[in-house]
Design a protein around this nucleic acid. Structure first.
Lengths: 348, 348
DNA sequence: CTGAAAGCGCTTACAG
DNA sequence: CTGAAAGCGCTTACAG
């Protein structure tokens, strides 16, 4: 049946490495035209059931797989989306990647990974690559790259940004609600009976540092609690920075009984400092972080934290991307605010 | 200069969305043939310096980027490698991905990510995808997929496997030296003065459980220490399993003074159990793990562990892949054994 | 419901 | 050192 077009017979024979088949081969074996084969492949025009079945059977027997590049060249669809990630070794991004893959897989899209790693400047190279490879869309999870986002859009690629501080920018984007994360955490501390609640924030000049600090201040205001400077320490997102910040907080006349830390690493550092100072957590001082990194559940006492659902962010980004790919540049931009969750463990 | 071939002038004008240029446009603007443009692009044949410079300048001015699909269709090179990863949310794989990207970037290759996630059966779908997209090569970091590896090879794709238990299999692969990881850990415990050294192994029927248990047994033998059944507990790689296993070990007549745990999660579980039992770590019982997950440095006391360098594994896999892509199926298979490192912290 | 033919944007013998 | 032309394997008007 398939024998009469066995390309293999000509050349290599012993091995099972076959010269790749094309739709012409299938067409001949099925006794139809290339056009018809192409249409049973794409579904772009009706094909009689009998013909369709025959062609499909032949394809199966021959193990025919259409050439991806030829398809892409003609259809101008690569069925590929790129993810440009700040740092793939930061657990946030793999989770995002998974959510993205899950979202776009249904549309037969595959994810191409660009890990900016430590090398910040790589993003430029990636942008060129992404454009040249003519991916259908790209999710940019790197901060401070507004120019690149624009360039990508100009190249006709669907773009979705992930991260804070993009409001007003003409782009689809998804972010966590940093203000509410902070205010919810502060509220939780208040519910636990705390009144003198401090914060260890990230550098407030950039996101998500600014938003989280604002959320804390706002919540304190709404609760009618004072927020003097003695309650606000600035950290640098690291464990050591968190520890140093807590020591400063503890140095005040009236020490706080609770601290909202803008991320888990600083929270764990704060815990180090508290324990080091002979304080009981959460007895003497309650601590809550943000992120829910793996270690949050592994340290003792286990860290109470606000989980930012990276996977959902990835999924939302994928959904936005699919929309944007379908709609082209015409439709107006969307913004998805992803919901966080309080993971109540032992530290607060 | 570029004006006379401004495709934009015809259609959309206000926006800067330009109809993509092709080498024909460049050729006309430069007053040469498509052939020559193609050759300055590829470097596949000498071009006079003057011509080359002119063409390159024009490309620049026009912002011409060659169409990736047309190039791939003709050259049969996709400049894309796939990574099929067991579970991208396991920190081992992102690190591997980074190493892989670093290794192949120099060869202008980009990484396509396939995260098998929880859904184990996905691998089959991925294999089809990878074949159809005609990637140049694929790194398979999933276990028990020998059939798929063969299928990939048969499709003419360069394949590198990552993981244990592949010796004798006709494939390029890279793995950690599980036996030596375990024996080095055991030796370290011995150097610290311990004689009654226990192990909490993974299920020994599969890798890397078997190899690590064997390494422990071997080291104990070489040290002239006895390894009765009372010293060997089997865990399930989880924190809870590690805790349960340590309780069992502690129940013996003569409790061990040190435990080699086959991964960090079980080691942290064992630490939980030890602390819970009022034991001091490492005073009463020393503990060493394997992996060096993030949490290893974050728990108290910080965990001493054997680091399996995921990034190096990725890099080695990338190097092997590049070789295989260059050499085709002809050359004999390579095996890279990656070196681990003892990270001495507080628990042992 | 189906085909013949042009075309996608490149690369690569072939010829000079 | 350079070009004209065929070809890669598809898709898609156009025509019936």
């Amino acid at each position: 049946m398939a024998n009469d077009i066995d390309k293999d017979a000509a050349g290599s024979s012993a091995t099972s490495r076959t010269a790749p088949l094309n739709i012409q081969d299938v067409a001949e074996a099925a006794g139809v035209s290339k056009t018809t084969v192409s249409h049973v492949l794409s579904g772009n025009r009706p094909v009689s059931p009998a013909t369709r079945r025959k062609v499909e059977r032949i394809m199966d027997e021959l193990g025919f797989k259409p050439n991806f590049f030829a398809q892409a060249l003609n259809s101008k669809k690569s069925h590929t989306v790129a993810l440009i990630a700040q740092d793939i070794t930061n657990p946030f991004y793999p989770a995002l990647a998974r959510g993205l893959q899950n979202a776009v897989a249904s549309a037969n899209q595959v994810v191409m990974l660009f890990d900016a790693g430590a090398g910040h400047s790589l993003t430029r190279v990636f942008v060129d690559d992404v454009i040249q490879r003519r991916v259908d869309g790209v999710v940019v999870a790197v901060s401070n790259v507004e120019d690149e986002l624009l360039e990508l859009q100009r190249a006709g690629i669907a773009v979705v940004a992930v991260g804070s501080g993009l409001s007003g920018f003409p782009i689809d984007w998804v972010s966590a609600d940093d203000e509410r994360i902070a205010s919810d955490a502060t509220m939780h501390l208040h519910l636990k009976g705390h009144r003198r609640i401090a914060t260890i924030s990230g550098p407030p000049s950039a996101e998500p540092g600014g938003g989280r600090l604002a959320g804390y201040v706002k919540a304190m205001g709404e609760l009618g609690l004072e927020t003097d400077a003695n309650l606000c320490a600035v950290g640098d997102w690291t464990r050591e920075g968190g520890a140093a910040a807590l020591y400063r907080l503890l140095d005040q006349d009236v020490a706080p009984t609770a601290v909202f830390c803008a991320n888990d690493l600083m929270a764990i550092g704060a815990m180090d400092a508290a324990l080091e100072s002979g304080l009981d957590v959460p007895g003497d001082i309650a601590i809550v972080g943000v992120d829910d990194i793996d270690a949050a559940g592994l340290v003792r006492p286990a860290l109470t934290t606000m989980r930012v659902p990276a996977q959902e962010i990835g999924r939302a980004a994928g959904d936005l991307l699919l929309h944007r790919i379908a709609e082209g540049t015409s439709s107006s931009h969307r913004h998805v605010l992803v919901q966080h969750t309080l993971i109540a463990r032992q530290s607060a």
